[in-house]
Amino acid sequence: MSINDNLFVIIMASAIFYGTPLVFASLGELLAERSGVLNLGVEGMMLLGAVAAAWVSTNVGGPAIVVLPLAIVAAMIAAGLGASIHAFLTITLRVNQIISGLALTIFAGAAGLSSYLAGIWQLGQTPVKQQFGKIDVFGLTDVPVVGPILFHQTLLTYLSWVLVIAASFYLFRTRAGLHLRAVGESPQTADSVGISVSRYRYFHVIFGGSFAGIAGACFSLMIVPTWVDGMTAGQGWIALALVIFGFWRPDLTLLGAYLFGALSSLGLTLQARGIHISTALLTALPYVMTIVVLVVVSNTASRRQLGAPAALGKPYEREER
């Protein structure tokens, strides 16, 4: 036991714990961006998911095995609905993706619909009734080092791993994934071979958005776990950075999420150990690092090789004459 009571193990375990919502959120954004749609509404969609999950957990009776999946589904639907507004505006109406995404965050975010609904539903006075606790996988929790890090997490973490593997397989090993990447690279080409650009974009923006809902549920059902206004505290924006950080690849994005998770929990962990270091400045590190990475990869040629979808952010309009 004592071998697991060291700084490294604690930091790694909490990196995964706190990085889990980031994995969901950035994976969803990754899918949307792979189809060529930038969605700055992640933060708003996460809060919608968080509030929906909190409501289900607080108000629906029954065993955890029923309520918690239901809460996740509710979170996905709530966030997916938010994403569908963005999808309609940007894909069908070809509105500026940046402004539409920001509008979604303002509409749904900290001073918007999520807190409106929480107010109406009177959430946040008590912890949620059902939450995701850490589980002991195959009784391996006490295995030195890897036990607490890999085998003592919540179900949501394991779900995120499944999704990352599934998303990698989908993107690079299936025909639909090939089509998705084609739509993000060159919608003209995809259209000319009969791939429906708007169908792919709608699907991935909305489905990707629903992942942001799960990310929100991670906060209200796992990390906090109750409803607090604006509880995602800007993590939705980090998810956006992570997609770039991970070069639009699910596996690298997962690593990035854990790196961010480690940095944001590092200050607290160190303080608990009596090592004083400014938490504030430590939390700034991920943001600065993102900027540095962006500068390094901002050369267009290297960006393309690293996977940035060529048509990202550009509305598609079939050429006529």
Binding site: T174, R175, L178, H179, A182, T189, S192, V193, Q305, A310
Partner: peptide, 22 residues
């Protein structure tokens, strides 16, 4: 109508055929 970052075969396969789900 070709995607520069895709291989020749990938470009040719685009939009053709269906695989079983998954």
């Amino acid at each position: 109508r070709l995607i520069p970052t895709f291989s020749v075969a990938e470009n040719i396969a685009l939009g053709t055929g269906h695989d079983p789900v998954g």
